[in-house]
Design a protein around this nucleic acid. Structure first.
Length: 597
RNA sequence: GGUCUCAUAGCUCAGCUGGAUAGAGCAUCUCCCUUCUAAGGAGAGGGUCUUAGGUUCGAAUCCUAAUGGGAUCACCA
């Protein structure tokens, strides 16, 4: 039984004894005491006054005295402003620290064969251009919530649906055919995804040019779009592709492979991976079959021009196109197919889609659509919708060249970390290789933490200057504290001091020490909360608070230099557990911690 | 226009199911390396929590409305 439950049941009993009133534990508001007040747990007594029929001070004192008697771990209490603050004994906290220290994965639940299976889709890139800052947020969130789901006792399958077909892919293919002059990643020295991206941009430029020429002849924008040769050729290419025209198909395979090779590098640098990858080129046919199936069943209808639609006006939404007039698939067609294949492949209990909030409508439709097709899991799919990443100047616009490229950004972060570290002379004595590894750890830690610390649902501003700052509420600050702890522990070891297996529970604790242990004891709740709402930010902010407290403690208390052996033993134990907790917390964010920095 | 979302310090963000004096970081200004890593610590200034109502012992938090941003409603993805 946790201490909170002990206190609560004591309160229930006390209430019964004192006021002859039976209460439910649920109405007891027991929370951790504010940092600036004396005490460990606080009971808000206001809601209880109607039942106690006494004023807040009397009620608080009555209950405090009773709990003091009933709970041996409670050592004192105080009533202030209608709040009953309970203080636990130092011996209790020392024992708690001991227990946490004995469990390397304190706060984590492990999954077994019967645990729920959660499939998490993230990344889902298009194979027509390299990954950018927006994808970074998606990838980091997807990877982190996978780990968070995992440490909350779920079986997790990380998945990726690669959007490798469609008009947008044909655009870069067509541009390469027309203007590529046989360029390859080898011949240009470019990363494959960047090379293909260049042709996508090229297409857009040429298309714009064509449109403005047509409009100069007096055509309206719509007319120009309809008459565009480039767009016409693109659609023809899509038809050819769907018909598996050998030439088009070969080109498609080749260019996609270039992109995959490029993505592999980016994913590796980012430190994310997948258990199962689906390709739209494999799933859209299943999707199309299901659309026809739905048509037969009468769930959908066909217009005169042969296009197939689903009517959602009864649900307060619009009509949705499922298959074009020319029979080719649209975005949502493949999503239906992908869902079907996934549920055929795995016994999924929960499906999570990590996709930006601009697609809320899309997923609402998808859920209804799957429901209409008779899949009982349709309604239960979860769209983990996160906010957009904006730059200080505003939204990223590819046309204005303000898109922050993922590869460039990561490289720049590493360069900054290297320069900073060299300037500070932090890694003197490390080999070049070891040092490079640390630079990368810091750079990625900085980037990941910067993005994950903000509430996923909210839009965020990404200021490159700020993201590269390694002081304050940043990844490197947390990593630094971890490294510092390792250094202290090493120092102690060098002096022959060991962490005792059993710390003397009579040692007096400082205010900061109690606070730290309290925070450590609270870690499981943080993990559980992060799991219930899929929020890495909760863990990030918790870790920052923990680290900040630790640094204050570090500054005011000698650890390896402490002369009293009992006190020293306790502090070393505390250091070890804080370090362990930092490492575990950062692990859920996909952030590594260095032993030295 | 319909729907959805957001609004907290100069800037970037925390403040969870209502609780004590609204917190951090950055930026500005002071201090602290003859003790375990100064990528650190201490301190100062900086707020009508967008506005107006409501709910109640108690509201940044819940409800309603207004204002201002953003998203979305494609034979784009």
């Amino acid at each position: 039984m946790t201490i909170e439950n002990q206190i609560k049941s004591a309160l229930v009993q006390a209430f019964n004894d004192l006021y002859n009133s039976v209460i439910d534990e649920k109405i007891l508001q027991l929370q951790l005491t504010r940092k600036d007040m004396k005490g460990d747990y606080t009971l808000v007594v206001f809601p209880l006054l109607k039942l106690s029929k006494k004023n807040p001070v009397e009620t608080g004192n009555d209950l405090g005295a009773a709990v003091l008697k009933l709970c041996s771990d409670v050592s004192s209490f105080e009533v202030i402003n209608g709040f009953l603050n309970l203080t636990l004994s130092h011996a209790y906290w020392i024992r708690a620290l001991q227990v946490i220290g004995g469990n390397e994965t304190h706060g984590f639940k492990s999954a077994d064969a019967h645990s729920p299976l959660v499939m998490i889709e993230y990344s889902s890139p298009n194979t027509n251009k390299p990954l950018h800052l927006g994808h970074i947020r998606n990838n980091l969130l997807g990877f982190s919530i996978s780990r968070i789901a995992q440490v909350n006792g779920n079986r997790v399958v990380k998945t990726n649906i690669v959007n490798d077909r469609g008009v947008h892919i044909c655009k870069s293919m067509l541009a390469w055919q027309k203007w590529g002059q046989g360029q390859t990643p080898e011949s240009t020295g470019l990363k494959g995804d960047h090379l293909v991206g260049n042709f996508y941009v090229k297409f857009d430029q040429e298309y714009k040019k064509e449109l403005s020429e047509l409009m100069a002849k007096g055509l309206s924008k719509e007319e120009a779009e309809a008459q565009s040769t480039l767009m016409h050729e693109t659609r023809e290419m899509l038809l050819k592709w769907e018909a598996h025209d050998p030439e088009v198909y070969e080109l498609w395979k080749t260019m996609n492979q270039w992109v995959y090779n490029g993505f592999d590098v980016t994913y590796k640098n980012m430190g994310v991976d997948f258990d199962k990858i689906y390709y739209e080129s494999d799933t859209y046919i299943t999707g199309r079959d299901m659309v026809f199936e739905g048509l037969e069943k009468g769930a959908f209808y066909q217009r005169e021009d042969k296009s197939i639609w689903c009517d959602f006006t009864a649900e307060g939404l619009d009509e949705k196109l499922l298959l074009r007039t020319d029979g080719t698939s649209v975005y949502i067609t493949q999503d239906i197919g992908t869902a079907k294949l996934r549920f055929d492949d795995y016994k999924i209990d929960k499906m999570v889609y990590v996709v930006g909030n601009e697609q809320i409508y899309h997923f609402k439709i998808l859920a209804l659509l799957l429901d209409k097709l008779g899949f009982d899991w349709g309604k239960d799919l979860m769209h983990f919708s996160y906010g957009m990443v904006e730059l200080p100047e505003g939204k990223m616009k590819s046309r204005e060249g303000t898109v922050v490229d993922a590869d460039d950004l990561m490289e720049e972060m590493v360069n900054t970390a290297r320069a900073m570290s060299k300037e500070l002379g932090k890694l003197d004595g490390y080999s070049e290789e070891e040092a490079e590894k640390v630079y990368k750890t810091i750079a990625m830690g900085s980037l990941k933490y910067f993005i994950l610390k903000v509430d996923p649902r909210k839009n965020m501003t990404f200021d490159p200057k700020e993201s590269i700052d390694f002081n304050g509420n940043t990844g490197p600050f947390i990593q630094y504290t971890y490294a510092r702890i390792q250094s202290v522990l090493k120092k102690a070891e060098d002096k022959g001091f060991e962490i005792p297996s059993q710390v003397n529970t009579n040692v007096g604790l400082g205010v900061k020490e109690v606070l730290l242990i309290r925070m450590l004891a609270n870690f499981p709740q943080i993990i559980a909360e992060a799991g219930s709402i899929y929020s890495p930010a909760i863990i990030a902010n918790y870790t920052y608070e923990l680290v900040k407290e630790f640094n204050q403690f570090y500054h005011e208390s000698p650890i390896a230099f402490e002369e009293d052996a009992d006190v020293r033993g306790l502090r070393l134990q505390l250091c070890k557990v804080v370090g362990q907790t930092i490492k575990n917390a950062m692990w859920t964010l996909g952030v590594d911690v260095p032993e030295r920095m």
